[in-house]
Amino acid sequence: MTLSILLLCCTGTAIIGALTGDSEPTKTGTAADQAQQPIVAASVEPTEETSTPAAAPTATPDALAPSATASPSPSDAAPAPVGKVTTETEQATIRYAEKTVKDSSLAEGKRVVRTKGVNGVRTLTYEVTTTDGVRTARKLVKSTVTKQPVTQVVAVGTKKPQSSKCDPNYSGCVPIASDVDCLPKRGDGPAYVSGPIRVIGSDIYDLDRDGDGTACD
Results as ranks from 00 to 15, higher is better:
D103G: 03
S73H: 09
A56V: 12
K110E: 11
E98F: 00
V112Q: 13
I94K: 02
D76G: 04
A78K: 10
T100S: 08
K110P: 00
G83R: 13
P57F: 08
K116Q: 13
A63L: 09
A78T: 06
E98D: 07
R95L: 13
V112R: 09
A59T: 10
K110D: 08
S104M: 03
D103F: 04
V101Q: 10
T69W: 04
T86V: 12
T115R: 13
E108N: 13
E98W: 00
A68Q: 11
A107E: 11
V113G: 03
S71K: 13
A80Q: 09
G120Q: 01
L106A: 08
T58F: 00
T89M: 04
A70T: 14
S104Q: 09
P72G: 06
A65Q: 07
D103R: 01
T115D: 11
E98G: 01
D76S: 12
A80M: 04
P57W: 05
P57Q: 07
A77D: 07
L106K: 08
T58E: 12
P79H: 03
S71A: 15
V82H: 05
A55N: 04
T115P: 00
T69Y: 05
G117F: 02
T50V: 15
T52Q: 10
G117W: 01
I94A: 00
V112K: 14
V112G: 07
A92S: 14
S71V: 13
D76P: 00
A65T: 14
T50A: 10
Q91V: 15
A63Y: 03
S51F: 14
K99L: 06
R111L: 04
S105P: 03
A80N: 08
K102M: 05
S71L: 15
P81L: 03
T115Q: 14
K84Y: 07
A78L: 08
A59V: 09
E90S: 15
S51A: 14
V101D: 05
P81I: 04
I94D: 01
V101K: 09
A55K: 12
E108M: 09
S67Y: 07
D76L: 06
T93G: 05
P57R: 09
K102W: 01
G120F: 00
I94P: 00
A55Q: 12
S51I: 15
P81C: 02
T115L: 04
P61A: 14
R114I: 13
A80S: 11
N119V: 01
G120E: 00
A68F: 06
T87Q: 14
S104T: 10
R111T: 12
A68E: 10
R111C: 02
A92T: 13
P72T: 06
